[in-house]
Design a protein around this nucleic acid. Sequence first.
RNA 1: GCGAGAGUGGCGAAAUGGCAGACGCACCAGACUUAGGAUCUGGCGGGGUAACCCGUGGGGGUUCAAGUCCCCCCUCUCGCACCA
Length: 842
Amino acid sequence: MGEPLYPFSEIEQTVQKRWKAENAFHVTRAPELPKYYCLEMFPYPSGRIHMGHVRNYSIGDAIARYKRMCGFNVLHPMGWDAFGLPAENAAIVRGIHPADWTESNISHMKDQLQKLGLSYDWDREVATCHPDYYRWNQWFFLKLLDKGLAYRKEALLNWCESCATVLANEQVEDGLCWRCGSVVILRTMDQWFLRITDYAEDLANSLETLEGWPERVRTMQANWIAPSKGALIDFKIERSGEPALQTDSLTVFTTRPDTLFGVTFLTIAPEHPLLESLIEHSPEKSSAQAFIEKTLRARTHQSREEPEKEGVFSGVFLRHPLTEERLPLWIGNFVVASYGTGVVMGVPAHDQRDFEFAQKYRLPVRQVIVPPGQDPTPPLDSAITEDGVLINSGLFSGLSGEEARLTITAHLEKAGLGRPKKTYRLRDWGISRQRYWGTPIPVIHCPSCGIVPVPEGDLPVLLPRDIHFTGKGGSPLADHPAFRSVPCPSCGGTGRRETDTMDTFIDSSWYFLRFAGIEDSPRDRPFSSEALSYWLPVDQYIGGVEHAILHLLYARFFTRVLFDLGLSPVREPFRTLLTQGMVLKDGSKMSKSKGNVVDPDLLISEYGADTVRLFTLFSAPPDKDLSWDDKAVEGAYRFLGRIHSRIESLIEEFPDAARAGTNAWRETLSPEAREIRTKIHETILKVTNDLENNAQMNTAIASLMELLNTLSQFQGNATREDSDSRQWILVSGYRTLLLLLSPFAPHLADHLGRRLGMERIAHLSWPVPDERALVKTLVPFVIQVNGKLRATLSFPPDAPEAVVVLGAREDERLVRALSGQTILKTIFVPGKILNFVVRPSQ
RNA sequence: GCGAGAGUGGCGAAAUGGCAGACGCACCAGACUUAGGAUCUGGCGGGGUAACCCGUGGGGGUUCAAGUCCCCCCUCUCGCACCA
């Protein structure tokens, strides 16, 4: 590496020092000013920033800076999603306390972000692992508990015996524990859940109001929530003298109550909570148990393949609610326990899965629906899933489709045998984690009082610092006697503190409210409501698509809950969403294992932050994947270097450039200078439109490069221009260029701005194109024959058809193209195109 | 299987139905240089001496005019995946 093209390192350090000294990007609410809340997803402090962060924050910063120059009061905060498992792993592997590891990562990453020159209001910085943040997680949890939105229930979890810990699905590899390699089993445990399904309907319906969100993300969320309308139907359990069960019927969920008379069996999920007691006295108990065990073991394998449908007869019989027919209950591996009721009615004639199952186990098939234009056609060779007219369905025969579904459901409801029901693919949100580095769940288990919430005044429940990591797994907090053992707030007896901590998705479900609401440093509330109602909603949210479902759904849910609690001024937190593409290298995602990571620090020291930012914005539209190309970065670097050297030589030629006035309109300019002025104003228009429409920064930057090329060329030519006009056009051109560049390469723009007489460019006004400059005297007209280009000729933009036709017919190429042709008609688009439609004459 | 998105030079990409390939990378030539992996200037889809012809995954269609709109097909990426 030889001489840098321009002294970026000194420039960037000087400019950053000045921003810091001025606290340049600090904001407070100002009701008289329009606000703009620009937010990028805050990072997990893993240790170092990566190119994905650089891209995310470069996009966000360009938007924030642009809006600031447009006159908005811009809130642009940054913080740390600081709880999570990696900190605990570091503690185990390297013996560093999670808190120390996290703090040191934060401090290093903050340095890195500051080196990029991002215009954050650092006064609002939050870290979710600090008690003054996570205490509000606990406070919200108590509110949710109070509202019945937090509850406890048994859930099936992946459990590793040897680590004595719960594993997330992605930590189970091929049925084995990712850490120790032993077999993972499914185990039921009491877990805390949040009732997100109470909001499912609203979360799904409101998606269509989110016009500023990518269609893709809305579809993903809709598919994830997936409302489904149907009915619950009860089937009585047949008894033969054995002891009473907890319940005397099993309930199924179906979207097709119209097929009720086609039921020939029922199927239950192997992990259904009632199954064990159901088969207790079954003659088939041992084969049933063997099947259940085998299936549950297979469940932990995260195989992508859909396993073959298998099942076994449970030995139990049920009664059809309307016909009283005796129906066998089968256990099936294809039944999803957590959806609907975990029991489905088997209608082989009208459901493909049931059909395959019935074929395999020779269960009867009974057709009860005849689609329009068809005859009953037993035996079937596949299920008939379309709607049709009911047959063999008692008094409902003859009804069709939707009519039958409503009538049968109503009939069942009247008889107390069923009811309409809407279910969702979305499940309630399990938030318990058997981990240390998270928010303690603020409840106490008391042997006499049950579950007792920690009184609000006792918050926060602090994470104890003196924690012992065995590396064996299990919740470290459960091994901490002083934390665990606590008097019951209600009876004073000995209680056991909840030792599970919260899912870290809770932390990120409301941080955007905290950033805004931290403004008046509220002590007894999570945020200042005045500040919230000024700043919310987030106007522009930017982050990776990988958060399209979970984070964004949880944040929408949480915001609704807080709205209902009177704490949030909005129900929807994010007005517009930009999901940026991945940063790829050599065709695949950057990762340590592939050895294709690009280190932002290295790039910054080699080219400077401005180049790194500019290239990431220039090389692809923000929402598409970006292929990193070490060579192509040089293009961005050369562009900035050229701006620097051009402006320096301009100052050499005109030492008074900084004091030159360029705002007044000039009538007297050479045609050449006029054209350049037009180009300047066209560039303003182009960059502004590109930023307003979908943040198309790649094309905005391309047009800045065009402007530089134009100015450069003019500057390099010894023109006949008089010196005063020459200075005027060049200075106004470069000033505009710097203003337009400043969201993308803020350091260089600030530095060169000063050289040309503009102080604090980040706070100057965004330029507005002058209509007078956009008027052109001549524009190229495309002359076509039968739609094929034959010439381009210059005319005034408002030239009438006759003039253009006349001019065209004089053109040598047109004369050739039209000879021997009869003109049928001409198509004329003013200012643009003339097309002769011709046919050979005779 | 279902849903969404995308296929354009050697590469990243650009084009309100109106000149396909702006801008950048790579490459080629020239200038300046003791030197060039620096910088500057110019060229750069394919074919053809040229006039011209061909060209946006493939095939049809609408139109004076299609990368863009409509129909069918192929390929790739992403999301969901036995959801009753």
